[in-house]
Design a protein around this nucleic acid. Structure first.
Lengths: 115, 115
DNA sequence: CCAATGTGCAACGCTCAGGTTGCACATCAG
DNA sequence: CTGATGTGCAACCTGAGCGTTGCACATTGG
């Protein structure tokens, strides 16, 4: 968590945390690109709800929207997701190193660090 | 999102989504292992709040608790985090393939799949 | 044994994210 | 021009999640 620049990746997690947003992303993966109205047609929620989710997804970088006439087309940003995945993997490695270190200390000496 | 067994990994995301939970995980990474009472001492919330978060983190597999006398000690599960990271990376790859495919189709023919 | 310490359970309050509805403003087709 | 289609903005509602407090139950040390 204390890695530099981690904040941007955390935002991506917020984007992925909601089930409805995951459905939207899933649908976008199928369509390639779509509008809020189109997406709402395949979901049990209103267009406005979809719009709000897309706005958030855009903010965190998982999606990018571009105007085309009176339409607003959105498409996925795989690079952002990949970056977040990479960051998570590094965090896992950090945890691991941490635990290995503590385990090593506990074995070599009798010093319990959290006592 | 349609990958088999994805549900388990999604739960991990829920665990990571909350700022307070991230602080708890961060603290645990420092301590190696700790009790809810200890953790609450270093956070601006009550022990009960920490307990609830630990219960959730335990459920999603990011943390494991084990009883030791009258204490309940929790420690991190880096393997689960690593698995989630791997899954995210694969999902990103899937998105990428998807977009490449659509792009290719759009270039070779004039067929727009979402029209 | 008994006081101290730590945990677990339950009820409660409050904020806010997710969703809805209604309407005004653009843009396109005929 | 005018109706149809699509977007954007704002107010509103509701439930779940985060946090609190209070108390009863276990375990340990002196």
């Amino acid at each position: 968590m204390s890695s530099p620049g981690a904040v941007a990746h955390i935002e991506v997690l917020d984007g992925l945390a909601d089930p409805t947003r995951r459905r939207i992303l899933d649908a976008l993966a199928g369509y390639g690109s779509a509008t809020a109205t189109t997406l709402a047609g395949g979901l049990p929620i209103s267009r406005q709800a979809v719009v709000k989710h897309l706005a958030l997804l855009d903010r965190v970088g998982l999606v990018s929207g571009q105007r085309a006439g009176r339409e607003m087309r959105y498409r996925l940003r795989p690079d952002r997701l990949e970056a977040a995945a990479h960051w998570l993997a590094e965090l896992a490695g950090e945890w691991d190193r941490r635990l290995q270190l503590i385990k090593h200390i506990a074995e070599s000496a009798e010093t319990d660090p959290d006592q």
